[in-house]
Design a binder for these strands. Structure first.
Lengths: 206, 206
DNA sequence: GCACAAATCCCCCTAAGCGGGTGATTACTC
DNA sequence: GAGTAATCACCCGCTTAGGGGGATTTGTGC
């Protein structure tokens, strides 16, 4: 039996990337891909998908609304949310609307396939397990000693960006970035990028 | 049918890494692992391997000698060479002795599994195909405008090492490294690490 | 209102890394 | 003897990363 997957995602590169990945896996087949929910809706039934990869930030009908509509029109499909922003509200909403899981768009490829097969086997819609995992994975934001801005900057550092680059991407001055970094180092009691990243990863701050 | 794999490799980390990888794949099973050929020899027949992953730089009996012995004692096995140094002589010798393929130890994991299954299906010992691929992949060293030392240093840069680190690893002065880099840039007609790496990869110089 | 945290920015400094330039010596090959 | 490879020594400017010292604005809570 082949697991039929479709993707609804406006970014062509991400769409193609996921298609490539899914088709690489034995037992998984990307039967179709769409840039919007409107485009996908007429084919939902004929595509006969087991799993739908659904972008939350969609043009037109957004991902959250799309979940409700899919659940109504084609309740058999497991929905996995794709998102760039790890926004708690949206992900919890999505899960409560019937999504089975979520993936960040930069999730390592191995995890992506793993998640698809996991969703198929175990969890029905909004399994307690998934909800728990989500809470777990968001533990970081809750009890972190770092402020939002500081976390954001530390994530930039984790991606190997320079202070200058982080500054321009956040539309703030280099000096501000520097101050934040100094504060981060002070809070984590370290004095280098490497140590800060080590502690942050260990304590799941990022 | 399960493909039986064994590995002969003195580095424990690499051994465990490959074992993990191989066992992850459906249809592949790592039946045993050994730190030297001497250790492996008594079990060659009982292990009944389809594929042997063999380190070239082995303590005691080295990989090249091991190939001959394996071919004599247990000719059915396909031998895949593991090596850190992409040394033409050794790899050609290995292939002429009856190895079916080779892998660099930092080959991406997807390629490793791919190579094992490829070797099983297609090429007998020293297939013309493999030889051609090897020659292809070594095209770099032959018609490269860069000297050996320059290539070596460029590879260091490709691994993200600083000039100082490259210098200490090659037991030469930082200034020497700098001069080499300047010469590399001049030969490749570029003015930065990034450009140099781009050109070098494009022209398969590294 | 006052304290505090968060976020923004401004200086000072040192050290290291990178790139460009201009030399040099040794040694080996054609 | 010309050329190349490999080694090293200075000059310069620029960027990045830290450490240190300030400052302001905005909001939230007591």
């Amino acid at each position: 039996m082949v697991t039929r997957v479709i993707i609804i995602e406006d970014d062509q590169t991400i769409r193609e990337g996921f298609t490539y990945l899914v088709n690489l896996s034995d037992g998984l087949k990307m039967v179709n891909s769409y840039a919007s929910y409107e485009e996908a809706e007429p084919y939902l039934v004929s595509d006969f998908p087991d799993v739908i990869l659904l972008d939350i930030e969609l043009p037109g009908i957004n991902g959250l609304d799309a979940i409700s509509r899919i659940k109504k029109k084609y309740p058999a499909a497991h929905i996995i949310i794709l998102t760039v922003y790890e926004n708690e509200q949206n992900i919890f909403k999505a899960l409560s609307l019937g999504a089975s899981g979520y993936l960040t768009k930069n999730t390592p490829s191995s995890k992506i396939i793993e998640s698809i097969t996991e969703v198929l086997q175990g969890g029905g819609p909004l399994s307690a397990n998934v909800a728990k995992m989500v809470i777990q994975s968001f533990r970081k934001n809750s009890q972190s000693p770092l402020s939002k801005r500081e976390t954001q900057i530390l994530e930039g550092i984790a991606e190997g960006k320079s202070r200058t680059r982080i500054a321009s991407e956040l539309f703030i001055d280099k000096e501000t970035v520097k101050t934040h970094i100094k504060n981060i180092y002070s809070k984590l009691d370290v004095n280098s990028k490497e140590e800060a990243l080590r502690i942050a990863r260990q304590d799941k701050l990022i």
